[in-house]
């Protein structure tokens, strides 16, 4: 039973916000492909959301107010000011990195990373931050997986799985080569709203077959690591941990299906 325009239009906002379950998403996508009117409405809603994210002012807390609040708290703790949320002040950030304590989150699924992976995690974050700082995010810029995937041919001794997740809210931006843990790895770059998600992919080394999902937060960045099909994946970003978890789930659907 095909979905009608009325139902589709009703669910479109929730679809735009990625709040629907997979069955509903598939129904809607099917309808959109056959209905230009709903498709146009969908495009309008996506455009509005993108415009709001881009052009609506985000008011960061004035520093004098932050100081005033700190001072008003009983036995005021000493801490450096917050880094601005949208306009990254990288210089200030460097000095406050150590003092920013990432928000603890309680995704019971995940465990704390063992310290053996700490160095790797540091390298992953450094690479992510470096690419943002230098603006060198991608060597190959394309949202087409059939462009990005072959680009790695001959540059790596493995072929990373590449999927465009635009319909899930994580458009593929491109890829680059990176060097982590003394070996070249594939870095796939995705976007989620104003945030950049770097996904590092490398074959599992040694005889470790099954690595349960693990995550950590540090310096305001969040990392999720998991293994699938002989590859180990590290996703790093400053998006909310919940969004990073969603990114992993969405990707897993593709990895399992393809």
């Amino acid at each position: 039973m095909a979905m009608e325009c009325k139902d589709t239009l009703e669910l479109l906002p929730a679809h735009v916000d990625r709040e629907l379950g997979l069955p509903e998403v598939m129904e809607i996508e099917r309808h959109l492909q056959t209905c230009p009117r709903c498709q146009a409405e969908y495009a309008e809603q996506l455009a509005l959301r993108a415009a709001i994210g881009r052009d609506v002012t985000y008011f960061n807390v004035p520093s004098h107010l932050e100081s005033r609040i700190q001072a008003a708290l009983p036995s005021p703790p000493l801490r450096a000011p917050l880094p601005a949320k949208r306009t990254w002040n990288w210089l200030a950030m460097g000095t406050t990195l150590v003092s920013i304590i990432a928000v603890a989150w309680s995704v019971s699924l995940y465990m704390i990373l063992p310290s053996a992976d700490d160095r790797f995690a540091d390298e992953v974050i450094s690479s992510h931050v470096r690419s943002l700082l230098t603006g060198h995010g991608v060597d190959v810029a394309s949202s087409d997986r059939h462009t990005v995937k072959p680009w790695f041919n001959g540059k790596l001794d493995f072929s990373p799985p590449v999927y465009d997740l635009t319909t899930e809210g994580f458009p593929l931006v491109g890829g680059r080569l990176d060097y982590i843990d003394h070996r070249p790895v594939a870095a796939l770059v995705y976007r989620h709203r104003q945030h950049v998600i770097d996904l590092f992919v490398a074959p599992i080394t040694g005889d470790r077959k099954d690595i349960p999902p693990q995550s950590l937060s540090r310096q305001g960045y969040h990392i999720v690591r998991w293994a699938h099909g002989g590859m180990v994946f590290w996703a790093v970003s400053d998006v909310e941990p919940a969004q990073l978890g969603k990114f992993r789930e969405v990707l897993l659907v593709y990895l399992s299906g393809g």
């Binding site: 008011f59 960061n60 807390v61 107010l65 932050e66 609040i69 917050l82 949320k85 920013i100 928000v103």
Partner: peptide, 8 residues
């Protein structure tokens, strides 16, 4: 850490 969000 959420003062920015609060103010916004």
């Amino acid at each position: 850490p959420h003062l920015h969000a609060a103010y916004n």
